[in-house]
Design a protein around this nucleic acid. Structure first.
Lengths: 152, 152
DNA sequence: TCACATTTAATTGTTCGCAATTGAATATGC
DNA sequence: GCATATTCAATTGCGAACAATTAAATGTGA
């Protein structure tokens, strides 16, 4: 019996790695949602907070470079984090073009509440840490190759 | 020398597989953008067309189940595809609750133009087909485990 | 110095993505 | 047969995501 043609069809949905990635991102988002609701954060806001918990008082551009997001996404998101009293936005005195993002005490404090999130995600992944790390490294390598093509 | 603590920090951005997936999805989107612009499609619209090129004349719900999207996303998207004369939306006569989505002749014809897309993506991935297939299968398995947790 | 380019955020407009609700059609239990 | 529940698409509202543009600040070269 010949193999089904569809198994090789380059336009078949199930053969698209991009769709695997796209749908996995949505699946992660849905798992994170109830966990982050308790922190009062959306998933992209959580990513911004992860950046700030590592290093604080950074310009918008630095956050954008780490998360691959631009000011059109970050400006309103950061304003919402400011409205939630998690960050403060202040224009740099050295370079008036820059807006520096700093954590408020509440923003710092939220990190402790956030520590319960990664274990829940790990449990939902139903997978060993070493397997996840290996997958993560592969996906990051693919992402970086794709991003390299874009900059041409 | 002790290993850097950050290499194990569960809240470190670079240790998040979800961020790897999230940022890879955006990278794919950016690579697809110029290719799909030529077809007059956005990436989610392209996914819907992939579904319809496999099977036509299906209710909105079927498309949603395949793509993990709900009517809040699909209804306006399908209306835009209809405005672009790629699909026709007709209420089923057997079950008036359902709206059936059928390709127009232009919708069918677009498939031929789309055949050039996957090879370009493969090239941008800078990776063998077998490696991509292996990664895709791993990511799909992870996605399905995550989705299984959501339904609880 | 002064014209010009570059950098940085902010803004605008379009398109997702989803939760929550609505309303209509259909199915089910009694 | 009829009340009730379920199914399905549409709608509303909010939060991303990004392209394109704007505006202000800074840097550069002649």
């Amino acid at each position: 019996m010949p193999r089904k043609l569809s198994a090789l069809d380059p336009l078949r949905l199930d053969n698209q790695i991009c769709f695997a990635v796209y749908s996995a991102a949505h699946a992660f988002n849905r798992v994170y949602k109830p966990l982050l609701d308790r922190l009062g954060l959306t998933y992209p806001q959580y990513l911004v907070m992860l950046v700030l918990w590592e290093r604080d008082d950074v310009p918008v551009k630095d956050i954008g470079e780490k998360l691959f997001l631009d000011s059109g996404t970050l400006t309103p998101l950061l304003k919402r984090l400011e409205a939630a009293h998690l960050v403060k936005r202040t224009r740099s005195s050295e370079d008036e073009r820059q807006v520096l993002i700093a954590l408020t005490p509440q923003g710092h404090a939220l990190k402790e509440k956030a520590r319960s999130v990664p274990p829940s995600i790990l449990a939902a992944s139903d997978c060993s840490v070493s397997e996840l790390v290996a997958m993560k490294d592969e996906i990051v390598a693919l992402r970086d190759r794709l991003n390299a093509v874009i900059g041409e």
